[in-house]
Simulated scan of single mutants.
Amino acid sequence: MLLAIDLQSETPIYTQIAEAIIEGIAKGELVKGEGLPSVRSLAVDLGVNLHTVNKAYHLLKQEGYVQINRKQGVIIEPVSFPVADASFKQRQKERLKPIIAEAICRGMEREKMLELLEQVYKELKAD
């Protein structure tokens, strides 16, 4: 599994790791039942503290993307992924607000924003 993290980013490293794994699932690069690298292994590969990777994995577990099993390690949730319920939609709305606000301030038209959203969706949507 290839993960790229930006050590200069304002986004915490554990969040970058979790988001990269979710992106891998969305793209179909990571599938249900597939194991993720051990905390120690991924930490060494990325050159980060193992507690950072552990925090990312626990965030993914909390959100329902993975299961953590002492014998099998961390595996992509084989039963079902979390649903896009009202709480999820509200969180996404709050995350989108600053992005859309910046686009408006820069003069981006609604149609161009929707085109960009559609483009990103198509890039990420697993076939």
Rank of each mutant, 00 (worst) to 15 (best):
P78K: 02
G73Q: 01
I75V: 12
V83E: 15
P78S: 08
S87R: 14
A86S: 11
I68K: 00
V83L: 12
N69Q: 08
D85K: 00
S87Q: 12
R70E: 13
P82G: 06
Q92L: 12
P98T: 01
V79L: 15
P98G: 07
F88W: 11
K93I: 09
F81V: 00
Q67H: 08
P78E: 06
N69I: 05
K97T: 15
Q67G: 05
A84Y: 12
K89N: 01
R70V: 11
V83I: 14
Q92A: 08
V74S: 03
E77I: 00
Q67C: 02
Q90Y: 01
I68R: 08
Q92V: 12
I76R: 03
P98M: 01
V79Y: 10
A86C: 04
R95T: 08
Q92S: 13
E77D: 06
R70N: 05
S87A: 06
K71P: 00
Q72H: 15
S87F: 09
K71H: 08
P82F: 09
Q90D: 07
Q92W: 03
F81M: 12
R91T: 01
P82Q: 06
Q90W: 03
K89I: 09
Q67A: 06
E94D: 10
Q72V: 05
E77L: 03
K71S: 14
D85E: 01
D85F: 02
K97Q: 15
S87N: 06
P78G: 06
K93V: 02
N69C: 01
I75E: 09
I76G: 05
A86R: 13
K97V: 15
Q67L: 10
E94S: 13
E94R: 12
K71R: 13
F88T: 11
D85N: 10
V83Y: 07
Q90C: 00
K97M: 14
V83R: 14
R91S: 04
K97W: 13
P82M: 03
S87P: 02
R95C: 12
Q67T: 01
F81D: 00
K71W: 10
A86V: 03
N69P: 08
F88Q: 03
R91V: 04
P82E: 04
K93S: 09
K93C: 06
P78N: 10
L96A: 13
K93R: 13
K71T: 03
R95F: 14
V83T: 15
R95I: 12
V74G: 03
S87Y: 13
K89H: 02
R70H: 05
S80K: 15
F88Y: 07
K89Q: 05
P78Y: 10
K89S: 12
Q67W: 06
D85H: 02
N69Y: 09
R95N: 14
P78L: 10
E77H: 09
E94T: 14
K71C: 00
D85A: 02
R91A: 06
R91W: 01
R95H: 11
E94Y: 11
I76F: 02
R70S: 13
I76A: 00
D85T: 04
Q72N: 14
A86G: 03
I75C: 08
I75R: 11
